[in-house]
Structures are given as C-alpha cells and as structure tokens.
Design a protein around this nucleic acid. Structure first.
Lengths: 407, 407
DNA sequence: CGAGATTTGTATTGTGGATGAACTTATCGC
DNA sequence: GCGATAAGTTCATCCACAATACAAATCTCG
C-alpha cells in the first residue's frame, strides 16, 4: 500500500507489540471491511456470522463505527422470514471523504469520494502542463484543493486525507518526485507541499499515477478482482500489479515502468536513451507519429483514421499492439497474472490492439495452452487516478478506523 | 509465503477475528523473531525494550518458548557492568528441525536444519533424472526422507515439517506439478505423496526451486537483505523476487519464469515454442552448445575453455551475459529492485558474465545514472533450494510458535 | 387472535492476557 | 559491607471478547 510505511527492520518478524487495544483495532477494521465489501446492507448478526465474533462484540464495534459516522444504520425492513427484522448497516454517505488530486499533462484536478462511493466534489481543469513550473502548478492545485475541502466541511463532511497522483517516479522515502518526463519535471521536493494549506491539516501522500488508477479499477470492479495488471497507456506506459487486493508498489516504493521493457534490443531510440523500449512502439507519441498524425493531437484522430482503414494508422496500431503483446508476455511469465486491464489511451484503442496483443500472448506465454488470460479495457472511468487517490485515502481509513473514533 | 494458504475472500479486509489468544500468538512470534534475527544472544530485558512489551510479559512468553524447546537459555555471563547479569537466550540447537527436499536434474536430496542454522542431516544422491518416472523418483525421495526423519527422532530431534523443491511450475491450489521441462515431468499429482510416510505425519509443501533457493540466500545474508532478485540459472532460468523479507510468489503461487522473457522477438527458437527467450541464449544448454561443448557436460568445462581464451566459449558467455542483461534491465525497470543475486550456474560464471550484464543494465535501467544497482554471485552454497526448504519450514514455525506449545 | 417459534440485538458475568508497580536476585564500585 | 544498578518475578488491575441469558420484533399455525 502506498500509504503504509513501516520503519525498516532487520528480520521477518515485523510489527509491534500487540496489546488489548490491538484487538479492538483489528476487529473494528475487520467489521468495517465486511460492510464495505458487501454488495448489500448487512446486519450485526450477519457480521457476527461472517467474522466469527459474537453478536455482542459485533454490536459494540458497530456502535463505535456508527458513532464516528463511518457506518450508517438504515430502517429495519421486513424480509418475510420469521424473527426480529435486522437493522441494515451501510457505509455512511456524505460524512467522511477522501481527496484525490492529480496533475497530468493535459489537466489537473481534485475529486472527493465518500465511503459509499459517491463523488462529493469534482474539479477538473484542462491545461497544458508540458514543461511547466512545478511550483506554480502545485500551488494552483493546493488552492483548488483548499476550496474543495472548505466547501465540503461547510456541508458537514469530514475530509480525512489527500492523495496526489503524478505521472512519474515518486520516491516516498526521500519525499520527492524523481522524474516526470512528460511534465518535464525532475527532482521536485514534495515536502514543502505538505506545509501548505490544506495539506498541513489533511496530510498528503504522493503516488505514481498508474498505481492509483489501478486502485480505481479495483473499486470499479466492485473489489471482486483480487489480482490483475493495470496498464496505463499515455505518452509513457506505466503498469501497476494488484495482488490480493493490494498494489504491489515495487521494491523501493515506485515502479511499474512497463514502458521501458525492451522489445527489440536494437530497436528505435527511446527518450530514455536506450533502444527498443516498449514506449518507442506503443506510447502515445510513437503511435501518433507512426500514424502520420500530430504528436499532441487528440486520440480520436487516430481512431478515426483507423476506422477509415488508413494504412499508416493501422500499421502503427499493429506494430504497437505487437510490441505491447511481446512486453506483456514477458510480464505474465514473470508474475502469472491472469487478468490484464488496459487503461489510459489503451482503453479506447483496445478494439484496434486486441488481436495483435492476443497473438503475441498466445505465442509467448508459457501457460497459454492451458490457462485463460483475460485482456480487457478499463472500467475505471475518466481521470481514474483521481478517483483512485480518494479511494486510497478511504482504504487507509478502513484499515485503521480506530484513528477516527471520538475521544 | 508458500506455506500460508488463506481461503479467497472478496475484499481487502483479510484475516479473521482477533481474540485474546491472538495476542499470545502474535507476541510469541514477535519475541521469537527478535531472537532469531539477533546477531548475538539477547536477554529478556533486551526483548522487552525491543518489542515494547513489559518485562513481565516477555518473561512469560520466553518461558513458554523455552519449555517448548524453541529457545534455549545460556549461562549468565558477567559483562563487567553493574546489575544482575542477563540470561542469554538463543535459538535452540538440535531440538527442532525443518526438512528440505529437492529433486533436480542431476541429484536428489534431503537436508535437515535446526533453528540455530546447523545442518543436522544431509543426504545428496547424484543421479540423472532427465526423462525419469516421477513415481519412482518421488518414492525414492520419500524413503530417504523417512530414514532421515527416523534417525533425527532417535536423536531426540522433533521434525516439524518438510518442504520439497522442484525445478518447475508448481500449482499449490491444484496440488500438482504443472510442468518441469528439464525433468520431463508434466501434470504430476502431488496429493498422493502426502499420504506416504513420512509426509503423512510431517506434512509437505511443494515449491518452485528458485523460490526456495532465494530463501536460502536470504538466510545466508544473515536476514539483513530485505529485497533482492535471486536468479537461478540452470538449464532453465528461474527468478524469485524477495520483497521485505518475503518471497513474492507470483499471483497464482508459482512464477518467476525469467527464462521466458523475450530478448529478441525473432531470436532463436526456445524449447517453449516461442522465439528469442532468454533461456535460448543464457540457459545452460544454450551456453554449452554455443561454446561447442556437450550439452550435458559439467560446467567447469566451460569455465576452463573461457580461462584458456577459447573464442567460441567467450562468445557464448558474451552473448549469454548480454541477453541476461537485457532481460534483467526490463525486470529492474518493472520492480526497482536494487540488488541482484546470481545463483545456480551463474554463481561460478559470474566473473565471465559480469561485464556484459553490467553494460546492458547501465544502458537500459532508467535509474542507472542515479542509483546503485548491485549484482553479485550467490552466497547460499550448494543445493541452495534444499537449505531454503528447511529454512522455510522453520520460518513457518517462527510465524506461529503457538502451534508447538505443549498442551 | 394468541401461543410458540425464530431471529435480532442487548445486558451481565467470566476469562485470558497484557500492564504497572513492587519485590527479589545478582553483580559492580567504592 | 553497602548503596547503586540492572534482570527477572510476583501480584493486583484493566480491558476486550466469550458465553449465557434475556428482551424485542416478526412469522406461523391452530
């Protein structure tokens, strides 16, 4: 999880001493998790059966969660069966919200999501941030975030945290953005941002855009897909592996540079200085240029050309799809992931890429003859990373609801 | 961890209800972990300071662990400082042992290791298991394991479990070996093996050889390297990523087929049916044949030729090292791992491969200009997977020492 | 329509494990 | 030998969950 950071320890026996209060924390999180994951409202009795706790214990925990506005009680409904009707419990609406922020090449924005999944605020500001000044852009973003937080709090919503998505390599330990090629940013110190309102109150975590988009995808699939690879196609190509409902964040906290998987060692020169990287075949710039279009033009131009049967466009997509398939096949052999979600520009392009990707996967994945490998376009919607950031904040809350309990 | 298997759940709130006994389990494991990780014997007071538990609680926990022969108390030593001398606590020697088993192409064996790291029994039987009959080989292995377990128990050693390493894709959910190309095994049902002595008593987990070798490497480095990539070079090439002291086991429990990373999409045909896989450049067979040697010959032949300056041998190693570097660069870009350990045949070959690997990493790894990336030969010793299997059994014990408490 | 059955949720008492303070044990320094 | 110091133990207390009993709300059936 991008949010959790433990101090480094020498051995495998991580963690800290467990005391009585730890039981509370664990069981609060357990109960809350069951309510959040459920498709329909559940009762205290349901929770007791599902968790193995007694009804008395569940009641005590639920009362705490209701009091702290995390859960809401509905009106009892007659189900037609014998017995006292159950009180339905649901995630509270409009009480607590996570803030998801994003700076990307062509927009910035702020989105607030509550525990029920409702979007309480949504600000998306188009703009060209190519070669922009980080200080200016981030100050603009902070001001808009402060406005949103202020409005929400006036409406009685507690904002519990904020998460910023950036299209680049983030180093959480050094608290800086290492490099975001498409913004033209490098070595941006992020610690100063945490001193600025509203982040001085809310806190702020900064994460790679693909990782947070993957969280949004996970939620969009109703938390039902435990493991998948999210591929974020933009100018660069990011990947985020979700494994057992957790984003695998790379060894040092940043990762997923799928775009710099080598496809052909002596292939075209990539912006990174190496030859034959996936990005040089299947990044947005590479596709647009190969199709004879403006590098900065809208993606729909490429789709339109392809629909017309334009030969250069089709060739660009075939080559991009082929390269993507080669890179994904290696990735699948390494991780055995069985589900691949194509996001970013690959969402709309999926119909054009599909066959080319599938052919390489079929030829190169070891388990292809025996196992199903699903490749699908993303369901996470527009500005997925903004949604994912907000969801990630709420996931942090769900992992430790005791932090929100009234004193 | 290969040993732990939870039932699949829908959401992120994994785990089960925490009750009072959970505190004991957690804190027992915490205390034990500190003793196992320590470089020197520690006292109860040290443990209290390190864990945050009170001395009273630590004492109670340690007494349980001593009683169940997991920890041993030494004689108090005068340290020269004031105060009552501390009782040094160490992992018990010769009381509990894990059994590590392995079937590989040219040998099979059984190794027993205790909590102190001593090898209590070691049986390695050379033999050619190319195209062998799984039933015959596994029956042979079981008989030798039973002998070892019997001898140990006659010496008062409790054997707490067994772990089998196989050079292939293991599917723990279906309880079968899917395929082990170099043994010529495919779709071997492993559940029957669990009914045979001694595994009917000891239990048995089956894991990919590279994953267990990585565990051995982790221990050989004194548990001090939390994250690294272990590369197992044999006829095939496996990889195991250790992340925060845990083996990343792949999404479905098997993984790490580094050997089938595509190096050149139109490269030489690989045994898997695809073209240009790493294995076709840098697998043992590929190297030997390219050097003009017998595919099945000993590795020292290749080293000898290289030492003589034999041109085909040097060319084979250059090409293999180049391909390995290309594949590892993609892997590093995906995971940001900062430490690569070369095991199997790459241990002895490391001096010959080093420069070629490093050149490609330097050219292709995004963070190469800024970050140190260490590539080293393995320290885990011969038959690393056998050691790793035994260690893994003991790690399972350390994670839940309450299971060994006397009733 | 009323008595029993059934299920939900609450109140009460008991238990296990950690805490914290006081106590005992063993050594050092003077 | 005596105080200081540190390790380890004893014991009363607290806290969270378990178990049991009970109250509340609905259905079923005579």
């Amino acid at each position: 999880m991008p949010t959790s950071k433990q101090p480094p320890r020498r051995g495998p026996a991580r963690g800290t001493a467990a005391r009585q209060a730890s039981l509370r924390e664990h069981n609060l999180s357990l109960v809350l998790g069951h309510v959040l994951d459920a498709d329909a409202p559940v009762s205290r009795a349901d929770l007791a059966a599902a968790t193995g706790l007694t009804r008395a214990t569940v009641s005590a925990l639920v009362d705490l969660l209701v009091e702290s506005r995390v859960l809401a009680e509905g009106e009892p409904v007659q189900t037609g069966t014998a017995g006292r009707p159950a009180v339905p419990l649901t995630p509270a609406r409009g009480t607590l919200a996570g803030l998801g922020l994003e700076v990307n090449v062509d927009y910035l924005g702020v989105r607030a999501v509550d525990l029920a999944g409702d979007v309480l605020a949504d600000v998306v500001v188009p703009g060209d941030h190519h070669a922009s000044d980080p200080a200016v852009v981030l100050a603009d973003l902070a001001a808009r975030a402060a406005d949103v937080a202020h409005d929400l709090e006036a409406r009685g919503v507690d904002v519990v945290g904020a998460s910023l998505a950036l299209p680049g390599l983030v180093d959480p330990s050094a608290d800086r953005l290492r490099v975001a090629p498409n913004l033209g940013w490098a070595d941006v110190d992020l610690s100063a941002l945490r001193e600025v309102a509203p982040f001085d109150r809310l806190g702020l975590t900064v994460t790679n855009e693909a990782n947070l988009a993957a969280v949004a995808e996970w939620r969009a699939r109703r938390r039902a897909l435990p493991s998948f690879l999210y591929v974020s196609g933009e100018v660069g190509i990011g990947g985020a592996l979700v494994h057992e409902h957790a984003v695998f964040g790379g060894v040092r906290g940043w990762s997923g540079e799928l775009g710099h998987t080598t496809v052909e060692p002596d292939g075209p020169l990539c912006a990174c200085g190496a030859h034959g990287c996936l990005e040089a075949y299947a990044g947005k710039d590479a596709l647009m240029i190969a199709a004879g279009l403006d590098r900065l033009g809208p993606l729909v131009d490429l789709c339109a050309r392809a629909d017309e049967g334009d030969a250069p466009a089709l060739a660009a997509l075939a080559r991009g799809g082929w390269a993507l398939g080669v890179a994904l096949a290696s990735f699948v052999n390494l991780t055995d992931v069985a589900h691949i979600v194509l996001g970013g520009i690959y969402g709309p392009l999926e119909p054009y890429l599909r066959a080319h990707v599938a052919a390489e996967l079929e030829a190169r994945v070891l388990t292809a003859p025996r196992e199903d490998l699903v490749v699908e376009p993303s369901l996470a919607g527009a500005e997925a990373a903004m949604t994912g950031g907000a969801v990630e904040v709420l996931r942090g809350l769900a992992a430790d609801p005791s932090s929100r309990l009234p004193a």
